[in-house]
Write a protein that binds this DNA or RNA. Structure first.
Length: 559
RNA sequence: GCGCCUGUAGCUCAGCUGGAUAGAGCAACGGACUUCUAAUCCGUAGGCCAGGGGUUCGAAUCCCUUCAGGCGCGCCA
């Protein structure tokens, strides 16, 4: 694909600086250009410092044994005239600031107008096959707010990676095997019998939530008293299988309503039934990774960077959850993914080294498995900590939250912070802030522009020749410069796995737009002026729409 | 005790590979609707970047250390 104009300009500018450096070195003024020193171009925080700035003079100060400002002056002096740079100046302690001719902005606009939905796309991840596994909540109860955060993060990253050229698969691992679902079965069984009038002692470790009663009632409606005929074991299994499938279905619905569509739902049980779990233990044994101690079987994970060895088979002969997880991840690699990303909750971060150790032990580069931690959410209610407990059945579910604040606001709220931040979420505040949430500010910019287009006489036909001829005023240049940098924001957000770079960017862009909107009119008496301003609005609208799209947030035509 | 995350304005948080005078939203205060959507705009005020050392031309950013908060360290999942 074609490089974004921004990158092309950046590369050409680097080339021009390199030429100046080479020229200066030929004249003995500076040391020869080497591969060790890379020319870095940054976007200055202040617009008065130009479109780009380089710190090359500082880097060369030591080898050249000259003062940075002196070097910067030499470099500027050797720069040849180009159709790119309007002016280069030495500034501060030795920066070189570049002010570009506005033609580059018009080239950005031409590219944008040619393929508006594509604008912002980069090819950083072209050819890569990436799998994202996230949420993967146990099918034993409603999902919580951390699941909602992980969902927003995983889904947005998937969209970002695709926009960067990768082939992406979103996957959900269903923990439909083992103790947790069994406990669910026992819990439902107890409520089932209780509702049918039996004297029951609710299991000590059972799930206390009201939703278990709901499930039991639904079970009675569906199957009547028939389960009472079964043996206890059969009945619990029946409750388990019926129950987790019901819960799974509601999780699938919740996620779909949230806008998250998975490519695959992967069952843990299927691994057990296919014998893959026992097979993994056998393979580990063959590879000499295991030893026996105190009747248990251990994996020498410490040889692969873990801080202690891990049990794979307990003294009573059961394989641990860890083994199923290894089997699962080996399966992922077998499916041909180049890179695996898992998003886990903060309580699982201690699990990362052993998982990577297992992959390394099977000959995979552990760097191909990346685990992101969706950090905790401190739920508050009126400023006071609100402790959630599945056991006591007191929690705010993901669905509660989404119904309360809406998908767009919830996603924005989760994504506007770095994934590492432990965010405070005040339930009362979230309700109050609904109307003040910054997401509406950004969406409003989009809606305002849509409104302008609805009132436009005639059609907006972007014409490259016209675009190339427009002369922009300074406040317009500022907006277009922001538009121009969008592909880099996309690239950075994907590379660092930080969608909040996008929310910040969109907020900035919307601010510039709203300010301009209050200052200037789009629909004027002058045809050329109107055309130019409409073009500007069109560019902003598409960037906002694409940006919100990458966050999984809607871009409304009106509000 | 060990490991991971966090500590920046009254509150919630940004600050990209180290760069120029540390930013935004909310809250507070003062202004702007005869005009394409006031869910908007303009302005004022607000800081010892938790503390202390170090690295260098330059540190909120990197290293060491102390303190504070959260989480994790089972033959659990």
């Amino acid at each position: 694909m074609k490089q974004p104009v921004f990158r092309e300009v950046q590369n050409r500018l680097k080339e021009e600086i390199w030429q100046a450096w080479a020229k200066a070195s030929q004249e003995g003024l500076l040391p020869e250009p080497t591969g060790d020193i890379e020319i870095l171009l940054e976007i200055p925080k202040e617009r008065v410092h130009g479109n780009f700035a380089t710190n090359l003079a500082f880097v060369l100060a030591k080898p050249a044994r000259r003062a940075p400002r002196e070097i910067a002056t030499i470099l500027v002096d050797k720069l040849v005239d180009s159709d790119l740079v309007n002016q280069a100046e030495v500034a501060g302690p030795g920066f070189i600031n570049f002010f570009l001719k506005q033609s580059w902005l018009n080239r950005v606009l031409v590219a944008l107008v040619e393929a508006p939905e594509e604008y912002g796309r980069v090819d950083d991840l072209a050819g890569k096959k990436i799998q994202l596994e996230f949420v993967s909540a146990n099918p034993v109860g409603p999902m919580n707010v951390v699941n909602a955060r992980a969902g927003a993060l995983g889904d947005s990253l998937a969209r970002l990676f695709k926009f960067c050229g990768a082939e992406v698969a979103k996957e959900y691992y269903i923990n439909d095997y083992g103790i947790q679902v069994y406990t669910l079965g026992r819990s439902i069984d107890a409520r089932y019998r209780e509702l049918l009038g039996q004297e029951v002692v609710f299991p000590e470790d059972g799930y206390q939530g009201e939703y278990i009663y709901d499930l039991a009632r639904a079970l009675i409606e569906e199957k009547g008293r028939s389960l009472l005929e079964m043996s206890e074991e059969k009945r619990i299994e029946a409750c388990r299988d019926w129950g987790y499938k019901k819960i799974l279905a509601s999780q699938q619905k919740d996620l779909a309503d949230y806008g998250i569509i998975y490519d695959q739902w992967f069952s843990e049980r299927s691994l057990h039934e296919a014998g893959r779990v026992d097979q993994v233990v056998a393979e580990m044994k063959e590879r000499g990774l295991l030893y026996e101690e105190e009747e248990a079987v251990w994996f020498r994970s410490t040889e692969f960077g873990d801080d202690k060895d891990r049990v794979v088979r307990t003294a009573d002969g059961r394989t641990t959850y860890f083994v199923a997880d290894i089997a699962y991840h080996l399966n992922k690699f077998a499916r041909g993914f180049d890179h695996l990303i898992n998003i886990w909750g903060p309580d699982h971060h201690g699990y990362i080294p052993r998982m990577k150790a297992a992959m390394a032990a099977f000959g995979f580069d552990p760097n191909r498995l990346e685990v992101l931690i969706a950090q905790q959410i401190n739920l508050l209610k009126e400023g006071k900590p609100f402790k959630m407990s599945k056991r006591r059945g007191e929690f705010i579910t993901m669905r509660d939250l989404l119904e309360e604040v809406g998908n767009d606001a919830a996603r924005w709220y989760f994504l506007m912070r770095s994934p590492d931040s432990h965010l405070d979420f005040d339930l009362e505040l979230a309700k109050k802030e609904t109307a003040e949430n910054p997401v509406f500010y950004v969406q409003y910019a989009h809606a305002r522009i849509s409104s302008i287009f609805r009132q436009l006489d005639g059609e907006f036909i972007p014409d490259p020749e016209f675009i190339a001829s427009v002369v922009w005023e300074d406040d317009e240049k500022e907006i277009l410069e922001k538009v121009a940098v969008f592909p880099e924001v996309v690239s950075g957000a994907a590379r660092e796995r930080e969608p909040h770079r996008l929310t910040n960017y969109l907020l900035d862009l919307a601010t510039l737009f709203h300010s301009y909107y209050n200052r200037k009119r789009f629909l004027t008496e002058e045809e050329q002026l109107t055309k130019a301003r409409i073009l500007l609005a069109y560019a902003v609208q598409n960037v906002v729409r694409n940006g919100l799209g990458l966050l999984g947030i809607s871009a409304p035509e009106q509000m």
